[in-house]
């Protein structure tokens, strides 16, 4: 029943999403922004909305959020990107927007949910062409640290990343580097002041 409702009102859905984007841009209230952002990120979960969201340039909107001070903005923004990047079309568009450094930056968040979304997004963004950018030394070391984390979710996801996206040589080299002279601090959040 719900499926029928959704598809029967395809153009209504677009108007609704447009209203959300407009409210996000027009409002001065952070609370309203958070709500709308969460709405949009959840709409990004349903693949049938992806085309509309792309048309409304929601990808750029999410990417903008990654550099915000407000941690909720970051969490919802990267959550939205995590949902969007599952689709190949969206993935390519995200890659064209120079998103990789921003996503990697989220690995250092204090919030587990943000870090998890960033790992999954990075996984989705890793292609034959983008591999050079998504998997660098710092990311590898960071994932190695996550993979021995106490948190089962972080441990699992980082292990999947290392096993599926990286080569064994890459992992071995990063392990050696970590014990050697070139440790990086990526993924270690700054203490809260």
């Amino acid at each position: 029943m719900s499926e029928m409702r959704l598809s029967a009102t395809g153009s209504d859905r677009f108007k609704y999403l447009q209203m959300l984007v407009t409210e996000f841009q027009d409002t001065d209230s952070d609370e309203a922004k958070e709500q709308v952002l969460a709405n949009l990120a959840n709409f990004a979960y349903d693949p049938r909305n992806l085309e509309d969201l792309r048309t409304l340039q929601v990808i750029e909107l999410f990417l903008d959020m990654l550099t915000e001070e407000n941690e909720n903005f970051v969490e919802f923004g990267i959550g939205g990107l995590c949902n969007l990047s599952m689709d190949r079309g969206c993935r390519d568009q995200i890659l064209q927007s120079e998103a990789i450094p921003l996503v990697i930056g989220c690995l250092s968040s204090r919030r587990e949910e943000t870090v998890l979304s960033a790992i999954t997004t990075l996984m989705n963004l890793t292609t034959a062409a983008s591999r050079v950018q998504t998997i660098n030394e710092a990311v590898l070391q960071c994932m190695l640290r996550f993979s021995i984390s106490e948190s089962p979710r972080l441990h699992n996801l980082a292990s999947v990343f290392l096993q599926d996206c990286c080569t064994e040589e890459q992992v071995a080299r990063a392990e050696a580097q970590m014990q050697g002279h070139h440790p990086t601090a990526l993924g270690i959040p700054l203490p809260k002041d």
């Binding site: 693949p47 992806l50 699992n156 996801l157 599926d164």
Partner: peptide
Amino acid sequence: APEYETLEDTRLKIQDRRRYVNRTTKNK
């Protein structure tokens, strides 16, 4: 309760999701 997942559960979950999304958008 995703913290009870095994590594393989997590991997399959993401793979399935990716497959589903791409199938849906392609069909659309």
